[in-house]
Design a protein around this nucleic acid. Structure first.
Lengths: 209, 209, 209, 209
DNA sequence: TAATAATCGAGACGGTACGTCGTGTCTTGTC
DNA sequence: GACAAGACACGACGTACCGTCTCGATTATTA
């Protein structure tokens, strides 16, 4: 699981001795929250456990975020900045998509997956629709951009038909990954991803049939 | 929201005067649970509120189901028996799919949607995978059957290519409905359904391209 | 502890096979109640435990007595009929008193003691004063009579002064037994009884000082 | 009923604004418990009612005392510190005893009486005998000391015989008060106290017969 | 002797209080 | 002044027992 960022950051944190403040403290809380999330899942997440693991007071948590939901969303955003890095298409559309989908799966297996699960569980039509929309876009937009780039490279070399750039199609692969993860409790395996590509995505986007 | 079944059943229930027992009581609890679910959502659901609305003791709830999750799953199953009735394809594949997808959306707007949201929120890779699989199949199977029937009717009249019966494709439309509902907080509108059909589903299943 | 009456009566009960009714059942409940009382004490007494031990339904208990308190009072009365038998004074006032006080102590060590403890615990100035008075008299009267008889025999042979028949003095010895049992949790030992007699009771009642 | 200490203390409590903690809170709970005790009696005492009256959470009660019994014992000790103040004998033994016995009666009519009733009701030979002994001594010792002082003053002026200092005799008057209160549900009246003194206590302790 | 009524055992039920746990607020003392 | 620690008010949890009620089985009474 995403151990990498934890180690990397904690090195920074521990360099500052004594009592942490401001951003330093915030980072420590995020990492504690994400570790808890990965260990016990959103449904069993306790604010007290996060505070204890971060060696922080509960007040320091509630000063920054009004409740568990907001804290986890912020933690998810914090993590996303480190994870969703660049991706350069190779030209082989199927291989590129497969690669990105596998990476999405790895991400879902970590705290990010649990964060999304919790977010979904508390979402309602009556909730603050605007904020929900923002968060959803924050999750989807980077992925859409990556898949759009892949498709554009395919259009450029003639393997993808131009109409495939329709947003509904561009978003199809990550949507299927999300749906699989939420409903089955674990990310799609490589075999399942292959099926998705061969029976759904590639037939839809391929040029010259 | 699904008031129909409530009225229908309470007629049966109230015919038996005095203290409710066994199935009578179970029905009353289910209906109270579903009403609460629709009103406050899974995240704000309280066992005490269900018991109070059902005019039952908490012990009567805990005697039957070990926790909130089991109760809601059972309530969802109870509801499903009344809702997922037959559907006869007309031969017009797109119209039939559109009709069923709209009905799925209506269903998601009621307690069934909140039940699924709660179920998803508590699902984890480490949870009892077997039971989760059973429940998921109980949700998906009836829908798969309906969509398979629609596609078969299309194959019969030559509007659908035979390869479209692949499970991954058959399950595509309901999956997109689920994904939309979970991530956006409300069911897909008619316009969105039209886009799904025109850009994703119909191109994939249509014969003679 | 008072096993004797239990064995004696259960012989009668078991002679009647099948389902018990009426007085037979009532006796079985009393004995179950007294056994429970001796085992767990009044504070931990459960109606369900009594019913279970008596192999009776709870309704059979509540049909006869409105609550735990009434049941235990009735059980105590039932037991008293067997225990408070006659006593013939020997003429030796101190020895007679000592003997009766020891018997009171034995009685307190059994279910009767727990019954009294429970009765005391629930007594209040605002409670039904009339019934409380009746019960208290039912407990005290037989004892008063015994001690009065002892003192009368002492007056007859000149070892006791006639003024000792004042009710407050007659009741003194059993009162001290009761007080000791309630406050110390166990009946007065023989040594304590000797002290009571030598320092309190005998000096008060003895003639010719 | 002992309103005096309530007012006196609450003045201290209310001086500190905001949320109460530590001893402040403890005092508030004690006073709430004693008021409840006086109103509904030990048998009908509910932890939730005490918490509500003290405007405290149940957890704050259970953090300090494991159960109702311990809380009430602590409350009784708290109250005793304010009540069992000094008493200086006048030399008139009968008048002094009468005065102290009347004060004991007043005390029994308040929450202290209900506390003792509850304590007695839960006492058993099998219970923690050591703690029970401690509590009993805490109740009796101050009284014994007062009565011993009275008797000593009588010995000094020749109205009391020296042998009257035997513990069993010294404790006799308060024991009779306790026994009367427990068995009759209300403290001994002045008339009853006079009888106790004239027929039991004074004859036993008076010198020169 | 069979039918009928009463009583019983078993235990489900609605309700209340329990003792525990987690939330979000607030206070204290430390850095 | 921001922080760690944790006490606090609140409220839901899941459990235990109360006193009521329902059910079918057993027993006594009447036909």
């Amino acid at each position: 699981m995403n151990e990498s960022f934890t180690i990397e950051r904690s090195a920074v944190t521990e360099s500052t001795a004594g009592r942490r403040r401001g951003d330093d403290l915030e980072r420590a809380i995020f990492e504690a929250a994400l570790e808890e999330l990965a260990e016990v899942g959103y449904a069993n997440l306790r604010m007290e456990a996060i505070a204890a693991r971060a060696k922080a007071g509960k007040a320091s948590l509630y000063k920054r975020w009004p409740d568990r939901a907001h804290l986890i969303r912020a933690a998810a955003r914090y993590m996303a900045t480190a994870v969703d890095t660049k991706f350069e298409p190779s030209g082989d559309v199927r291989a590129d998509m497969r690669h990105v989908m596998l990476r999405i799966g790895e991400n879902q297996a970590g705290p990010a997956g649990e964060a999304m699960r919790g977010w979904v569980g508390e979402l309602r039509a009556t909730s603050d629709a605007e904020e929900a929309e923002k968060i959803r876009e924050a999750i989807e937009q980077p992925r859409i951009r990556v898949f759009a780039k892949i498709l554009e490279s395919g259009i450029a070399n003639g393997t993808v038909r131009p109409e495939a750039l329709h947003p509904r199609i561009v978003n199809l692969a990550p949507s299927m990954m999300t749906q699989h993860f939420l409903m089955k409790g674990r990310p799609a395996s490589a075999a399942v991803i292959d099926e998705m590509l061969d029976h759904i995505v590639m037939p839809l986007v391929s040029a010259g049939r």
